[in-house]
Design a protein around this nucleic acid. Structure first.
Length: 577
RNA sequence: UCGGGAAUCGUCUAAUGGCAGGACAACGGAUUCUGAUUCCGUUUAUCUAGGUUCGAAUCCUAGUUCCCGAACCA
């Protein structure tokens, strides 16, 4: 008992320092204890696994504290943005299982208000129109070791600045001729504070505001102010934005957002990076544009659309984000953690079926020709710790599996010359056909090249259902499909897209140099007939093979299944050793 | 040569001056009509050097390493 009293607090949960900070604010009644977050993607590409972490964090916080989370598109750079992405992103967030508060927001909804804020800045002498060229601005900004030089236009009067800024808005000046800058400090050691740009002139069609504007705000001017307009309490972003925080706060100060206890608070966390994965939108676009993959939703892509098509569940993605934790240290998560989260969820939820991916003919020579044995086989995911069959405490749902004289088995389940501990088919050895019976290999047929083309077996008719009458131990169980009933299907066997942990980590090479040449292998598989009528998106486990999801490329003549992920395999490892 | 961040098992992450814990991975074993699942067990960590303290991952000093920052991108 005394030991219990002295026991240190135990916390087996992964850390989430953001949640701790928010909780502290709620308990201190900051912002009346209100929690309002936002997920602010730029609609210039598809969401990926990294975004999932931010989505889970922001929406999760809102759920945890009974607050709200907005979906806000940060659409301030029309050159790269498109409605295609807006729709895809909305779908992805919904698919992940989250709902945003009210309508979808757009930074572009705030362009007028942002503009008014900017006029206030000008009137207060806190912003000016700079008419230097882009090169001059860059030159005069200085660098890490050299302070900047004031622009010759820095001392224009508020009245002149206001007139010029209004002309900029009205389209009186060509692109690039002027910018609006905040007047801060060209000598600051923080380069971000050397008179940051607020507006540029760009005659570009915007996907929402069309041609209403020819000046567009830059990130630093748009983001914090949008947070303020939406009354966001906690503005969560990734680590690289920590350099922007002083500016974030300065702008809120200048627009009169109130005391810092009443303003949005920027908090930075480490984004999710996975081994064997390249997440940046630019590279993802490159894979698409160079046809390395078939599109943004290619099942090898780390995009949410790709992962969804591959068969990954939203629950698996959420589990990954939960397990990874939230911290301020740059980290690279082993992709195995993700694969484990996928298997974990799929194992618990996938019905079981049989299918042969690389078929090899087997003839059961003493099985009556033309006869079919119908077997009732359970297909539900086994309960935790239970075996797939046998342990029928209560009736379990089953499907009919036909057994005939000619069947397909997996090519790798037969070896003419087998190593020790090979518990599958090999001459003279007995093996169980899952759910069906015991067979023994009595011979093989080969082609001219010496390749085994057919395996001959005898079955034990006393073992119908899978267990021998005399109770003898059968070590191996293999899957099979009746040839006569088999459904041909295109199966896409996906593997990691890269051959190395960090495809970006090599000098003199690009990530494209490390694309796995066998990241996709297409085979014609033989599936059991019960799978014939499954619809697009149906997920299942092919026993002993892996988890699969029916692809939208399926036609009535040719079903297509994607391998989401294989089963863990301790056999190939042993074999290799 | 500047400014800002961060350093705990192989990986991610706890412990906020008091037993360095968990997950994944690895390894061993048990169970199994999936070589899966499940169960049990084992190995492995506080960046370095000083200091404060009865006691330091935690506080102090110095150093080292890594990341971010010089777009009219976000």
């Amino acid at each position: 008992m005394s030991a219990e009293k002295n026991a240190p607090p135990v916390n087996d949960n992964p850390g989430n320092f953001v949640e701790d900070l928010v909780r502290a604010d709620v308990e201190a009644n900051v912002q009346q204890g209100r929690v309002a977050t936002r997920f602010p993607p730029e609609p210039n590409g598809y969401l990926h696994i990294g975004h999932a972490k931010s989505i889970c964090l922001n929406f999760g916080l809102a759920e945890t504290f009974g607050g709200t989370c907005n979906l806000r598109f940060d659409d301030t750079n029309p050159e790269k943005e498109d409605v295609e992405y807006v729709e895809a992103i909305k779908d992805d967030v919904k698919w992940l299982g989250f709902s945003w508060a009210g309508e979808v927001r757009f930074a572009s909804d705030y362009f007028e208000q942002l503009y008014q804020f900017a006029e206030k800045m000008i009137e207060a002498g806190d912003a000016y129109v700079d008419s230097q060229t882009a090169d001059e601005i860059k030159e005069n900004r200085g660098d890490f070791y050299k302070v900047g030089k004031n622009s010759p236009f820095r001392d224009r009067s508020p009245a002149e600045n206001l007139a010029l800024f209004r002309e900029m808005r009205a389209g009186a000046h060509p692109d690039g001729s002027h910018v609006l800058r905040a007047k801060v400090d060209m000598a600051s050691t923080d380069l971000k504070l050397r008179d940051p740009l607020m507006y540029r002139i760009r005659r570009v069609h915007h996907h929402r505001t069309k041609d209403a504007w020819c000046i567009y705000p830059l990130y630093d001017w748009a983001h914090g102010q949008s947070d303020h307009i939406e009354k966001i309490t906690h503005s969560i972003c990734s680590l690289e934005f920590i350099n922007h925080r002083p500016l974030y706060e300065l702008f809120l100060e200048k627009i009169g957002a109130g005391p810092d206890t009443a303003r949005p608070k920027q908090i930075e966390f480490a984004k999710l990076v996975l081994t064997y994965t390249v997440m940046s939108k630019r590279r993802l676009k490159e894979l698409v544009d160079k046809n390395v993959v078939t599109g943004w939703d290619d099942p090898r892509m780390p995009t949410l659309a790709g992962q969804r098509r591959r068969g990954v569940t939203p629950a698996a993605l959420r589990a990954l984000c939960e397990r990874v934790g939230v911290a301020t240290k740059d980290s690279i998560v082993d992709v195995l953690l993700y694969e484990n989260a996928i298997r974990d969820d799929l194992n618990a939820t996938s019905p079981r079926f049989m299918g042969v991916v690389r078929p090899l003919k087997v003839t059961i020579v003493n099985f009556p020709e033309g006869e079919t044995l119908e077997i009732d086989a359970p297909y539900e995911a086994p309960k935790q710790g239970e075996a797939g069959a046998g342990a029928e405490a209560e009736p379990v749902p089953t499907r009919k599996v036909p057994l005939t004289r000619e069947i397909w088995i997996e090519r790798e389940d037969f070896m003419e010359v087998a190593p020790k501990k090979f518990f599958r088919l090999t001459p003279g050895q007995e093996v169980r056909l899952r759910y069906a019976c015991i067979v023994k290999c009595v011979g093989v047929n080969k082609d001219a090249a010496g390749e085994v083309t057919e395996v001959l077996c005898e079955w034990d008719p006393q073992s119908k259902g899978g267990n021998p009458a005399d109770g003898r131990k059968i070590k191996g169980t293999i899957h099979w499909v009746s040839q006569k009933h088999a459904v041909d299907a295109e199966v896409r066997l996906y593997d990691r897209l890269y051959t190395v942990e960090n495809p970006m980590g090599e000098k003199d090479k690009t990530f494209l140099d490390f694309v796995n040449p066998t990241s996709l292998e297409v085979v014609t598989a033989k599936l059991e007939p019960a799978l014939a009528d499954k619809g697009e998106g149906f997920r299942m486990q092919l026993e002993r093979v892996g988890y699969f999801c029916k692809d939208r490329d399926s036609t009535s003549e040719r079903p297509v299944w994607n391998r989401t992920i294989g089963l863990k395999d301790s056999w190939t490892k042993e074999k290799g050793a």
